[in-house]
Simulated scan of single mutants.
Amino acid sequence: MKIDEVRRLTSDQLAEQLLNLKKEQFNLRFQGATSQLEKTHRVREVRRDIARIQTVLRAKAATA
């Protein structure tokens, strides 16, 4: 997910996306612990997407 895409979303959409990414992160960690993780690069992508969304949410909260 690109930063431009994140900035276009509303706060509600960002919160929903953040929840989905947190669930995916949990599932990926669980798969990694049980040695079933195939796409190891996805862990890094999800972690960075979470950080992007949190950054944009904080910026929107500061301006509001």
Rank of each mutant, 00 (worst) to 15 (best):
A15K: 15
Q31A: 15
E38L: 10
I53E: 08
T10V: 05
R47K: 08
A33R: 09
V56P: 05
A61M: 03
L57S: 08
A51M: 06
K23E: 07
Q36T: 10
Q17H: 10
Q36D: 00
A64K: 04
M1V: 15
L19D: 13
A62T: 13
L21Y: 13
S35L: 01
K22T: 11
R52N: 10
L14T: 07
H41W: 00
N20W: 01
E45A: 12
R42E: 07
R48N: 09
E16C: 04
K2D: 14
V43Q: 06
T63N: 11
L21T: 09
E16K: 14
A62D: 14
D4P: 02
L18D: 03
H41S: 02
V6A: 11
R44A: 07
E5F: 09
T63W: 10
S35C: 04
Q17W: 13
K60W: 03
K60L: 02
Q13P: 07
T10W: 00
S11F: 06
Q17C: 09
R29F: 06
R47W: 10
N20C: 05
V46M: 01
L57P: 00
E45H: 12
R7I: 14
R52D: 01
L18S: 02
R48Q: 12
F30D: 04
K2E: 13
R44W: 05
V43C: 08
S11P: 00
A62Q: 14
T34E: 03
S35A: 08
I53F: 00
I3F: 11
I53H: 01
V6I: 15
R44D: 10
A33Y: 01
N27M: 10
S11T: 14
D49C: 00
E24D: 04
T63M: 12
L19F: 14
T34V: 05
R52Q: 02
K2V: 12
A33P: 05
A51C: 05
N20R: 05
V6K: 05
R29V: 03
L21Q: 03
I53T: 01
R29A: 02
E45F: 12
Q25C: 03
M1C: 12
K23L: 01
Q13M: 11
G32L: 09
D4V: 13
D4S: 15
K60E: 04
K22E: 13
L21E: 10
I3M: 14
I53W: 04
F30H: 06
A51I: 09
N20F: 09
R29M: 12
